[in-house]
Amino acid sequence: MKNLLISVLVSGLFVAALPSVGAAAVKLKTMAEKEVIVINDEGEETVTRVAADQIVPGDVIIYTIFYENVGKQPAETVRIVDPIPEEMTYKTGSAESPDVAVLFSVDGGKTMGLMEELRVVEEDGVVRPALASDFTHVMWTLTKPLAPGDGGEVSFRAQLK
């Protein structure tokens, strides 16, 4: 059922946008990293990020999405949507960043809302506030138009179940 909702949403989202694809001015690049502790020459433990090619249950991935306007006109209402992999649980607070509004989805991206406003209907019909583990998608909306040549990054952390 959840899968169906995701596909309905995503296809709906992009069918509307399809005619304009190809003239894209905003480029995206996604990275998956994890933190590892390394001991430096002074014998101190330091945290370094490495590519998350492989992880085990309990590990946290940091997903970072770099965006850049490579076109000649400002891009307005820039929204970046990233699905939280179903094997992973969103780490509360990790998606926040300056000059960006963050919304989440608990229904496969069908609807987006503020974390504290989202509700989940349990199988027995009881409605409860959403938990980070309910999140299926995170959406960032830039609060200002993205000028030509400008760019930035957004990121979130999620833990492998």
Partner: peptide, 16 residues
């Protein structure tokens, strides 16, 4: 994992 962006230039919505 794969992210998607939407944005508008003028009255046209684009997807990347």
């Amino acid at each position: 994992n794969q992210a998607v962006a939407t944005y508008t230039i003028g009255n046209t919505t684009f997807t990347e």
